[in-house]
């Protein structure tokens, strides 16, 4: 669907993108991660043809990206604004028409989304009468109104309450099911784990990681397991004896714990369960995969250490 090939962009002498390549497949949700100032927004602006790259290309469905392709792209910028004195309807029609829709189509699409979010009475409201969260919703509607094939969302969950975050997530999952491709730039790692199929991590203008969420987590796992149990912590530790190592514990109540354990020697998960059965009452046990948050922090700090050392 979208190929980003060796993009480089410098602002004055500072590199904002350094030879960045990415590939988005049709019908996936792709997460673009990176600390502040990493170059994510510049990359998104290049894809939206707001900024011209110094070198490299962007291909949309195999063709070099051109102005006409923007009609197939929906964009929700991070720093978003609306004309405060316009009504929701006027706004949606204006942006819809700029994206190639007829007035009638835009009106129908707006009707669909207002009904879907159950906010029909907002139609004639002026933007300055809306709360920040309400305005965010209008902005989301404006971004998806023309049913873009590729939807680019820069920090789409910021400013939303948890209920609306969930609502937007469900919308995105539904759009993905309809074959739409979605690129999300976000710091919300929980959402990334929940909805993203693949991610890329950009740091200091370079791409330092790319892959599916599961594969990245698998590749970074350290052989840790977690056991949620009811019973005595002493009995639990005694049972581990020399075959396993207790890494960490979390106290859930008087006699309820979650313990994180690492294997020693040739012991495996089944051996651990066998050892514990009868000593404590196991409620749940699972392999611990690093969270995207941990992967993110680790990758960024590694890179920083590397840079410092270099």
């Amino acid at each position: 669907m979208l190929e980003v090939q060796q993009l480089t962009k410098r602002f004055q002498r500072k590199a904002a993108l350094d030879n960045v390549s990415l590939s988005l497949r049709t019908g996936e949700i792709f997460g673009l991660l990176g600390p502040n100032g990493a170059g994510k927004t510049t990359l998104i602006r290049v894809i939206n043809r707001i900024v011209e790259p110094d070198s490299g290309h962007v291909r949309f469905k195999g063709d070099l990206l051109q102005q006409k392709h923007l009609l197939s792209i929906g964009y929700l910028p991070e720093e978003r604004g609306l004309y405060r004195n316009m009504t929701v309807e006027a706004h949606a029609l204006f942006l819809g028409m700029l994206r190639g829709m007829t007035k009638n189509d835009a009106r129908q699409a707006l009707q669909y989304w207002l009904e879907r979010f159950d906010i029909q009475d907002w139609r004639k409201k002026r933007i300055d009468e809306l709360s920040k969260g309400m305005a965010q919703k209008v902005q989301f509607i404006c971004a998806v109104l023309h049913e873009p094939e590729l939807l680019i969302l820069d920090e789409p969950f910021s400013g939303f309450d948890p209920v609306n975050v969930e609502l937007i997530k469900q919308e995105l999952i539904e759009m993905k099911a309809k074959g739409k491709t979605i690129l999300i730039s976000t710091h919300n790692m929980k959402s990334v784990e929940e909805i993203c199929d693949r991610v890329a991590l950009i740091h200091q203008s370079k791409k330092i990681m790319e892959g599916s969420v599961t594969a990245l987590q698998e590749s970074a796992k350290t052989g840790e397991y977690a056991v949620k149990f009811r019973g005595s912590m002493i009995a639990f530790v005694n049972a581990l004896w020399t075959g396993f190592e207790l890494i960490d514990k979390e106290i859930l109540g008087d006699d309820r714990f979650v313990a994180r354990v690492k294997m020693r020697g040739d012991n495996n998960f089944e051996d651990l369960l066998r050892t514990l059965i009868g000593q404590v009452k196991i409620e749940a046990a699972w392999e611990v995969l690093p969270s995207m948050q941990e992967l993110f922090i680790e990758a960024v700090s590694e890179k920083q250490t590397g840079t410092t050392e270099a």
Binding site: R45, R49, Y75, G81, Y83, L95
Partner: peptide
């Protein structure tokens, strides 16, 4: 004003 309320980014992502 379009610059300060940031709608300009949305506009230039659609039109030249």
């Amino acid at each position: 004003r379009e610059k300060s309320n940031r709608i300009v980014e949305l506009l230039v992502s659609t039109v030249h």
